[in-house]
Computed example of a mutant assay.
Amino acid sequence: MTTTPAPGPVRGLRLGLALPQYGALADPAAVARFAAAAEDLGFTSLWVGDRILAPREPSDLYPGGGTPEHPYPKEFETFADPFTTLAAAAAVTRTARLGMSALTGPVYSPVLLARALTSLDLASAGRLDVGLGLGWLREEYFATGVPWEGRGKRLEELLDALDALWTGDPAEHEGPQWRIAPSTVGLRPAQEPRPPVLLGGFSPPALARVGRRADGWLAGWMPKQYLTGLWSVAVDAAEKAGRDPGALRRVLRINPRLGTGVETVADVPPCLDVAREEGITEVLVDLHYVAKDVDHALELAGELLASAEM
């Protein structure tokens, strides 16, 4: 049997692509076709996001440019389930990493989340990257019965509980939010001791948590000085915790979108140059805001790779 080698980096960068999941691209039946084609093109990772609902009058504005008139992108009104989307991609790909950028961690029960993530890691033969963040929309917390206050501490405990469920024998956890009785957990991740955990966030406390607890940072496109400054917080926290900051990953997310300065696929290569200058080796490009449909997204993905390789 011939094994297809994993696609290599593009000029020192491993390029990932968001799977069709929301807005005009929200077509669960097209995920498998898109994922297989993206891997064949040479993308080394495939990603999903997490949006639970789109309230008509939200309490919070989308931090990526929300206004009172348009509190969040209209694309958020149609959003497919991230676990189902990744499972469909896992079934038809062989080499691409599969990740989340990012699940709103505190709204999930650790026992149910660990079961789903472990199943995905096994289904993909150990290709899962677990991405978690706090989210920004308090109505999502209210709708899932989770308090908005204390969400940072809840995320910290979620990480503790996931570690216990992935590595404990028997697995158990006792904390302010959850009690997991000593239990046999026969289903274990393919990756040992667990899948990599990447954390999102754009504040000093969030980056300190990355340095103390995570395997890397899910970063968003921002001016170079902010990328550098925030990353220094994670590096400092890792050193204080006795961890090797050089082992931490950075995945830079780029969303071509009107009004951001990165509005077309042609605007992405200069961002890749900045990533290289910063020592970032992994980039995720999300085409949901510029693609008309799934076929158009694949067309743009091909253009992106061609321009990135120039």
Rank of each mutant, 00 (worst) to 15 (best):
L199M: 02
I52W: 14
R14N: 09
G145N: 09
T2D: 02
V290Y: 03
D40A: 15
G99I: 07
W47R: 07
V251N: 05
A36E: 14
G175M: 11
A114H: 08
L252R: 11
E156Q: 15
L132K: 06
G229Q: 10
A247T: 05
H288Q: 04
G200M: 04
F34T: 02
P68R: 09
L98Q: 01
V265A: 06
R33P: 01
A266W: 08
P204E: 02
G126H: 14
L304T: 04
M1K: 02
L298G: 03
E282W: 05
E282C: 01
V31E: 00
E299C: 00
P71H: 10
P73R: 06
D169E: 15
W166K: 13
Y108H: 15
E57V: 15
A161Q: 03
G16M: 06
I280C: 06
A123E: 11
T264R: 15
T2G: 00
A102W: 10
R243V: 04
L112S: 13
G145C: 08
G229C: 00
G99N: 02
G168R: 08
L19F: 04
A91P: 11
D163T: 15
P147T: 07
V274L: 08
P110N: 09
A161L: 08
A241Y: 04
P63A: 02
Y72V: 04
L41R: 10
P7V: 12
V48K: 00
G16L: 08
G150M: 14
G246C: 09
A208Y: 09
V290P: 10
Y141Q: 12
W231F: 08
T228V: 12
T3C: 02
A29T: 12
A308D: 01
L305T: 03
G302N: 06
H296S: 05
L134N: 10
L13G: 03
H288N: 05
R194W: 00
P204V: 06
R154V: 13
W47K: 08
G131T: 03
D129R: 09
T93W: 03
M310K: 14
K74W: 01
E309P: 00
Y108F: 14
V146T: 14
D169K: 15
S183F: 13
S59P: 11
A266I: 01
A30L: 09
A123T: 08
A237Y: 07
A308G: 10
N255G: 06
R138K: 15
A26I: 11
S119P: 11
M1N: 08
